[in-house]
């Protein structure tokens, strides 16, 4: 295992070292110490590798990840695993806003709470949150699954496309065009698989499923009122 102390080296040096990592099996494990909330740690990884960040990270941690497994033993700031393509990112603590934003693939696990806009514009990423998520989570989610073991804040799934949302606790309110949908066997099966991947023993039957009512997919002339009001309520 290689190690890198951010008390001694810069973020740019760290990311360059990770990008030049080699990719040989057994030789591509990294321990990053003294992150101290620095931004853009372990971004743009493009090899199968194991990275552990031992402490609290700042904004955009593990952004644009591809193939790598990144674990953060602490909290993260805005935009953890934003635009992830594949691989796995695990946050042992809480995450700030826009966790997993625009992610195309891979698995993001947040053991604590995520705040507002978790999974905003998700495009295929799977996100499993052990705690609760804040307002406007999965806003404009296009594909992928968001699993919330706790509660969801206001306007869950606003303007949702085809992302599937599973929430165990209370949902403060549903966003425009987001509705509760029946849990069928295929949903229980995919939820079980996601919970297993995250290592959670919650039961799929405890969750409710939410998805798009698909009322916003097409132009409705009734919405085009002359007074300019209306919208999609």
């Amino acid at each position: 295992m290689s190690s890198f102390s951010l008390a001694e080296g810069s973020v740019r040096e760290l990311n360059a070292s990770l990008h030049a990592g080699g990719g040989q099996v057994g030789d591509n494990e990294w321990l990053i110490t003294e992150p101290d909330g620095r931004h853009a740690l372990a971004c743009g990884l493009n090899e199968p590798m194991e990275v552990v960040i031992d402490g609290n990270a700042g904004y955009y941690c593990a952004g644009k990840n591809q193939h790598a497994n990144v674990t953060i033993n602490g909290t993260v700031g805005v935009g953890v695993a934003e635009n992830m393509m594949s691989g796995r990112v695990r946050v042992r603590g809480n995450a700030s806003q826009s966790a997993g934003a625009t992610g195309h693939g891979g698995l993001l696990i947040i053991d604590g709470d995520a705040s507002a806009r978790c999974g905003i514009s998700m495009k295929g990423i799977d996100i499993v949150v052990g705690g609760s998520v804040g307002h406007m989570s999965a806003f404009m989610g296009q594909a992928g699954r968001l699993v919330v073991c706790g509660d969801a804040g206001e306007s869950l799934g606003d303007s949702l496309y085809e992302a599937r949302l599973y929430v165990r606790g209370d949902v403060k309110s549903l966003g425009s065009d987001c509705v509760e949908k029946p849990m069928r066997d295929e949903h229980r099966a995919e939820l079980r698989e996601l919970l297993d991947q995250a290592g959670y023993d919650a039961q799929p039957d405890e969750f409710k499923r939410y998805g798009s009512a698909r009322r916003l997919y097409n132009m409705h002339v009734d919405n085009a009122r002359l007074d300019g009001g209306g919208g999609n309520e």
Partner: peptide, 8 residues
């Protein structure tokens, strides 16, 4: 505003 300020 950011965790960086708390790190010390």
């Amino acid at each position: 505003s950011e965790y960086r300020a708390l790190a010390r």
